[in-house]
Simulated scan of single mutants.
Amino acid sequence: MPDVSPLPQGYAQPAGERLPLPDASAMTPAQRQAAQALIDGPRKGVYGPFLPLLRSPALLERAAKVGEYLRFESVLDARIRELVTCAVSRHVSNQFEWTMHAPLAVKAGVAEATIEALRLGARPKQLPPDEEVALDFTRELLATHGTSDPTYAAALRAFGEQGLVELASLIGYFVMVCWVMNVARTPAQASAAGPGVDAFPA
């Protein structure tokens, strides 16, 4: 019988979840209000980074709004958003975001071979031009904390000023929530399908 337990986050042993969902009876009114806002919004539940963020309801509400815009309303195409989210979650070895967004990336039109290359820590090949630009921008920003003039110019041509700013913000947002989950050892959802990511070096 296959193991259906959630993929753990973090590679220390034991890798138990540090900040799980608090019991409803132990929540403060502010926590209950923040949780209900997530349930009533497009996410339809409290999971992933919002489990640890629930310890700071005001921060959760503000982070959720930023993420809601970047995920659902950004001028960037969904295919680009999902590809970049996968690249970020692979970079920081986050199980939750990887297992959530890898299937969404494929559904949005990213090639399965591209996602598998990212999962293995390799640079995907034969990408559409806009994906090439987005991935170059993402990897350079993650590695150097900025972008060179050629990379900036290519992203500006591909996505415009608003798209470029939202691309950099998307990268920063997902690094932040991945870091929070890495610290909290928030596991992937129990329903997650497909392989997770291994710690670097793979």
Rank of each mutant, 00 (worst) to 15 (best):
A15Y: 02
A30D: 15
G163Y: 03
L60A: 00
E112L: 10
D77R: 13
L51C: 09
F137I: 03
R62N: 12
T114V: 12
I115W: 09
V46C: 07
A117P: 11
A153W: 01
A155I: 03
Q13K: 09
A193I: 05
S148Q: 04
T138F: 01
V106K: 15
F159H: 08
I80E: 12
P129A: 14
P42E: 11
H91S: 15
L170P: 01
G48M: 00
V175T: 11
R185H: 10
R90A: 15
L142H: 12
A102I: 02
I171G: 04
T144I: 01
N182I: 00
V66N: 04
P49S: 04
E161L: 06
Q162S: 09
F159S: 08
T144P: 01
P20E: 05
G41K: 06
Q31H: 14
Y69A: 12
E116L: 09
T85E: 00
D198I: 00
V46S: 10
L127F: 04
F137L: 07
S93R: 12
P103G: 10
P150H: 09
M1L: 07
L170I: 01
R43K: 14
E68S: 12
Q33C: 09
R157E: 06
T138C: 12
V46L: 11
S148I: 06
A158Y: 04
L60V: 00
D136F: 02
H145L: 12
E61K: 11
Q36I: 01
K44L: 10
S169P: 06
V165H: 07
T147S: 13
V110S: 14
Y11R: 13
V177S: 02
E132S: 15
